[in-house]
Design a protein around this nucleic acid. Structure first.
Lengths: 227, 227
DNA sequence: TCCGGATTCAAACGAACGTTTGAATTCTAG
DNA sequence: CTAGAATTCAAACGTTCGTTTGAATCCGGA
């Protein structure tokens, strides 16, 4: 039997992570039992505790597996753009696309489960459990710093707080859009056919975010009225 | 004892709903046990099942209590604006403020628990459980229709799908902003002091949403490239 | 005052949860 | 081939979950 299939290392680990992505997306963390999860992964009930230590550790591993490469890709793309620009400031749209594109490209491959992950991620920013939110925050921190200073360079005239809030809004729009892919019906009343056309969605989302980012500053009068 | 306090009807019901708002916001639906909940409400463990029937029914009652009046208020405000306009089209900003204002006004009163509800609501749009999402959708449907046609009247030149998506984006930005009030740190790196100044937040949010809604349409070239 | 419905209460129910255990099995290096 | 490590397995652990039960208590109207 020289042609026996080579068993990849950590095959069970991977099957568990894939099953977890799908089930956590469908039923949430607490709503997914280890029994259901290991059954779907074709593994023994004890496998999660053996390979990861605990359910919480599995969740952490799940996010690290996808989030680290995704954010590294974003930063690399930003580096590339700045390299190409050769000292000139980037257009805000380029920075937005570098960020948004990474998520949307992942949603396109239903095959390797990226879509499950992205939807799960989108709703985890607002997870009730603080230690989960802070894990996400920690995994995002380096990329977020990088993008913040990129925006600052492109928009030197924009006040610091204003930029932070607008990034917050942009981030939220993206998160919600990815997490709530079936909630468009909430507004549409029925399913639009082009829900999953990632290219079209990217065009629409980018136009919206870019305009929001570059919106006229609230008038001094408005701010004074608020204060 | 003629001065004995009048016992309001359903006093326990109300205490349970208030406790549920706070605990569901802190720990999520599945993460909040009936024992913790009833203890916080100062009620017996069986009280929820007696007054509501089940935990799910409690969740439904919780959303109906706040969401129905809130959306009725939004529609009434829109009616009032259109009355005042006397046939002339409303400004997009007025429509946005009518929608956004209702949420932000509720976040201002930490006293009667509105803030808890709003944060809980914001994350429930993307709840894993489909029957919860569809409950929310059902409770929003009438107001959403009303706002959609208001936007259509104000923006007659905008294609239907584009409007639906932009409303989706706006809705998502609002939902995320309200749900993830502590996630600004994700971008800021530290807590900005004006996190909870609802007036200032409203000015910032409205400026962002208005610009996004009125963003230039993606060029025909972009759409073609996507299709 | 006393009756009858509404509400509260302590106690228990069976089911499902995450985790642990120790033996059985599979894989791999010498 | 074989020893030892890595992995899988069935079974059980103690805990917590949402819900139910039937008696006790409260309370307004006759």
């Amino acid at each position: 039997m020289t042609l026996r299939a080579i068993k990849p290392p950590h095959e069970t680990r991977t099957r568990i992570l894939d099953a977890a992505e799908e089930l956590f997306m469908q039923h949430g963390f607490e709503g997914t039992s280890m029994r259901l999860l290991t059954a779907k992964a074709g593994a023994n009930l004890a496998a999660v505790n053996y390979h990861f230590g605990s359910k919480d550790a599995l969740i952490e591993a799940l996010f690290r597996r996808r989030l680290d490469p995704m954010n590294a890709g974003r930063v690399a793309e930003l580096d590339r753009l700045e390299q190409d620009a050769g000292g000139r400031a980037l257009a805000a749209e380029q920075i937005i696309r570098a960020f948004v594109g990474a998520s949307l490209r992942m949603i396109e491959d239903a095959k390797c489960g990226g879509r499950n992950f992205i939807r799960l991620l989108g709703r985890t920013y607002t997870d009730p459990q603080k230690h989960i939110r802070s894990l996400i925050g920690q995994l995002y921190a380096p990329a977020m710093e990088r993008f913040k200073s990129a925006f600052e360079r492109t928009l030197p005239q924009m006040p610091r707080d204003e930029l932070i809030w607008r990034m917050h809004f942009m981030f939220g729009t993206l998160a919600y859009t990815l997490a709530a892919t079936d909630t468009v019906q909430l507004i549409a009343g029925c399913k639009p056919e082009d829900r999953y056309d990632a290219r079209l969605l990217e065009a629409r989302l980018t136009a919206f975010l870019l305009a929001g980012l570059l919106a006229p500053l609230p008038s001094a009068e408005d701010v004074k009225k608020a204060a």
